[in-house]
Amino acid sequence: MNLKEFFFIGIPLVFLVLFLKGFLQSFFLAPVGNPFLSIALIFLSYRNVNVWLWIYLLVLGFISGIETNQEIFNLGYFFLMGVVFYWFKGYLNLNNIRNKLFFWGINLLVFFIIKLFLFLLTVPFSFTFSFWAHQIQELFHFFVVTLVWILGFEFFLKDLLIRKDE
């Protein structure tokens, strides 16, 4: 990611998504996944981690965190995602959709599981079927909706991100 991409693609995209998310969740009165995580995954799939992408990941993490009152967790997760991706970039071949889907899926699962873990630390949960059925339902919803966001960004940004060199 470079300065131009950061200001002309990254930041406007954040505002657009912020608006869309607010609109959709007010319309459906339900959560609509985590589009900020989707943006981060798309940029990580197409770009090497450099200073601008670090900053962008932090911006995304912070905005995502404000909404859930988990700023530190989100900042940390997005930052760690950058670190892990920086280390493993050489081993990951994200040129085909299967590998990308795997990479995205793993990230979504890990993100949700950490959130669930933090949630379980705060609530007096019990091993009742209805409680866990509810969590599985939420996981499914989060996974599917966030994946839809990712695929949407992939569709709209793919050409733009492939053509441009850093």
Binding site: G22, Q25, S26, L29, A30, P31, V32, I66, E67, T68, N69, Q70, F112, K115, L116, L118, F119, E138, H141, F142
Partner: peptide, 11 residues
């Protein structure tokens, strides 16, 4: 002014 729906928090 805003209702950020999330899976584990209601704010």
């Amino acid at each position: 002014i805003y209702k950020p729906f999330d899976y584990f928090s209601d704010l």
